[in-house]
Design a protein around this nucleic acid. Structure first.
Length: 445
DNA sequence: TCTGGGGTCCTAGGACCC
DNA sequence: TCTGGGGTCCTAGGACCC
């Protein structure tokens, strides 16, 4: 096996920069939903010591003082840019596995006759030319070593963003020595702490640790990771994207919610979103799990967290059915007098619509609601998602996320396209209140 | 005051079956 | 005192990933 891992550099920040050139070469951070945590940083922001994953409020002062640009997350933009990158990669390699929104494994087995470093440099240059997104590429004889190579390609300027460890034992040895065990793909915080307690600090230490012990302490996952570092592939490329087994829609709220109506509005919206997602994937769910939870960070408040799983009579992706089951679940779970901060639905036991078991009287995804649902999806697809919905889904604002720094959806909304002013200059629409304006605009249509 | 969201896989233990 | 053996299925929880 020879496999390359293509990983977009600081992906969310890079997406923001494509259409906002003033952000280039400047420190930028992107926040999670609700403007909660820092989840992406440009290199400049990393250099200024902004850590990953920390709460925004703790760093707000520093970010302002140092003039660091802040953006709320904009998944419509990132998702579309991701598609563009993956489409570009598919021009070069037939067999690829889209691993996450910003990562892709390429199967280079059988290309041993070409200079892989050279070839990957070309890929990197074309992806940048076509999409504006910079990527790094690591090559290895297993997925785990490709990951390792990628990490070093990013860190070491002299690699110019491409590092091949697939046929370079000396380099691989040095790479393993330089990498912390905890930075190996598959070794998280818990295990790296456990390993450090045994004096296993570097990736090389881990590779050379007694195999029986690794198997016993870290299960088959740990054993596989170790074998992969030794050069034995244990994790295959998933070229065919396997069907999802669950679909989850959940959110923390901008503020705490005490009344059942607020939770009703949020969960109704999640149910609509989840059902639409199922239909888009051609799947149906056998059951839905509804969960609500108070604010886990407020130790001073009474805590409650509960979920209920309810099966559908027949597997379903029908919005009305998901909606009514979800709302009946809420009634069961809700307790007055508590301050809820988060809710969600998890659609589970998913199967392909055509594989779903049917009953004497109905076939999943067929019947009288089928036309209604496809008309529904069609309208929302053309005019903007959420334009039409059901009466039970009130458009309440009590639970909305806080997003104070969101940029336009440059590539997926006509009314948010980048504006070209003076030659060579791009003026995005004002950032403040853009969502409020949008709702107005939508009503006009 | 303010702490994300969406996934997968594995394991242990209990319930249940013959 | 001694108390079978071999399974499957389900669930909760823990680990990991981005």
């Amino acid at each position: 096996m020879i496999v390359a891992l293509v990983d977009c550099n600081n992906f969310y920040c890079s997406c923001e920069r494509v259409f906002q050139p003033k952000l280039r070469n400047q420190p930028v951070v992107v926040l999670s939903n609700n403007d909660g945590c820092v989840i992406a940083r440009s290199n400049e922001a990393k250099e200024q010591g902004i850590p990953m994953g920390t709460p925004f409020f703790k760093y707000r002062r520093q970010l302002e003082q140092e003039g660091i640009f802040v953006r709320s997350s904009n998944y419509a933009l990132y998702g579309d840019m991701s598609n563009r990158v993956m489409t570009a990669l598919a021009e070069f390699v037939p067999d690829l596995e889209i691993y996450s929104i910003d990562e892709c494994f390429l199967d280079l087995t059988g290309m041993a006759h070409v200079d892989l470093t050279d070839y990957c440099r070309q890929i990197k240059a074309k992806v940048y030319q076509w999409t504006g997104i910079p990527v790094s590429i690591g090559i290895g004889s297993t997925k785990t070593s490709a990951k390792l190579a990628n990490r070093l390609a990013k860190k070491m300027p002299k690699t110019k963003g491409v590092l091949d460890l697939s046929n370079a034992p000396h380099l691989l040895e040095r790479a393993l020595e330089k990498t912390d065990a905890g930075d190996v793909w598959g070794i998280g915080r818990r295990w790296s702490k456990m390993l450090a307690g045994r004096g296993i600090v570097t990736a090389k230490d881990f590779r050379d640790a007694p195999e029986g012990w690794v198997r016993q302490k870290m299960g088959v996952i740990g054993a596989r990771t170790q074998l992969e570092l030794q050069g034995t592939p244990c994790i295959e490329l998933d070229i065919e994207t396997p069907d999802k087994k669950t679909v989850c829609v959940s959110r923390s709220f901008g503020k705490e919610i005490e009344k059942i109506e607020g939770l009703h509005d949020a969960l109704a919206t999640f149910a609509m979103g989840g059902a639409a997602k199922l239909r888009k994937l051609g799947l149906v769910a056998n059951a839905v799990n509804i969960s609500i939870r108070t604010n886990v960070h407020r130790k001073d408040q009474k805590q409650h967290s509960e979920s209920a799983t309810i099966a559908f009579p027949t597997p379903s992706s029908d919005s009305l059915e998901v909606l009514s089951v979800t709302l009946s679940g809420l009634k069961r779970l809700f307790r007055p007098g508590l301050k809820y901060k988060r809710a969600g639905i998890l659609l589970l036991d998913l199967v392909r619509k055509e594989d779903a078991s049917r009953t004497l009287f109905s076939t999943p995804g067929e019947g009288k609601t089928k036309n209604l649902m496809s008309a529904f999806d069609d309208i929302n697809q053309r005019v903007g998602s959420g334009l039409i919905t059901f009466g039970q889904v009130r458009r309440s604002t009590t639970w909305y996320m806080t997003q104070n720094h969101v940029s336009p959806r440059f590539t997926t909304r006509w009314d948010e396209l980048a504006m070209v002013g003076e030659p060579g200059q791009i003026n995005p629409p004002p950032l403040k209140n853009s969502s409020a304006e949008l709702i107005k605009g939508r009503r006009k249509t």
